[in-house]
Amino acid sequence: MLPKLTRYTRPESLEEALKLLREPGSAPLAGGTQFLAAANPDIEQVVDLQALDWRRIEVAPGWLRLGSLATLAELAQAEALSGPAGGLLRQAARRAGPNTFRNAATLGGLVGARLPVSELLAALLALGAELELAGEAPETVALDAYLDEPRGLIAAVRLPWPQAGAGGAHAIGRTPADTPIVHVTAWAGADGTRLAAGGVGARVARLARAEQALAQGVEAAVSAAAALEPPGDFRGSAEYRRAMLGVLLRRVLRDCGVKD
């Protein structure tokens, strides 16, 4: 139920979208998978972004640019997502949910929702993603900075491309396709190893301390990660999540070929 929602708009241009979004009670709408399910009662106007040309997946020199309105299904099948890094992204997109979800959910919507658990967000973090934010003063921000402090309208997700390296992703769930209790993704590239995890904090996040400790070896990274204080819920307690973070860290690092 969205009791206050009285206006549906579908702007044809970014300027129009931004103008509409400045109106009080406005919210952007992409695939809708979270919008209607969450049913925020304060929303008065939805600004459906589907008419914006933000769906393309393209490779430019040095960059992979993923339009924020690309669906997860499109990401999962995109040929542009090649090599080990592309494989990591495609697998994460495919595992994000059943086909109905992947067909509707968009990359920008997924990022904007800042879910506590998302293997795709973790893969993007591990691959050093940045966001192109639209607005009066368009800017590019690192994905982890956005997750800490969201702002603006996500036009695209950009990744340095191609990336040479190796990646790994592991997750634990109650069933094979369940929302993970804990998941960890690693990417060992030319500029070092990045680690990201979900289910161990309020949001999917980089494991900065574990990354730093990695210089002292895998077990040092595991110890550093153990300092996190995950939330506990019916899927798994804080204690379990903390322990599993270590187990999965070892596994993803092994997959990346990171030796102790």
Binding site: Y8, R10, L29, G32, Q34, F35, L36, V46, Q50, A104
Partner: peptide, 10 residues
């Protein structure tokens, strides 16, 4: 696509 999470207007 699931239609319970889509607005008709979409």
């Amino acid at each position: 696509a699931a239609t319970c999470t889509l607005l008709a207007a979409q």
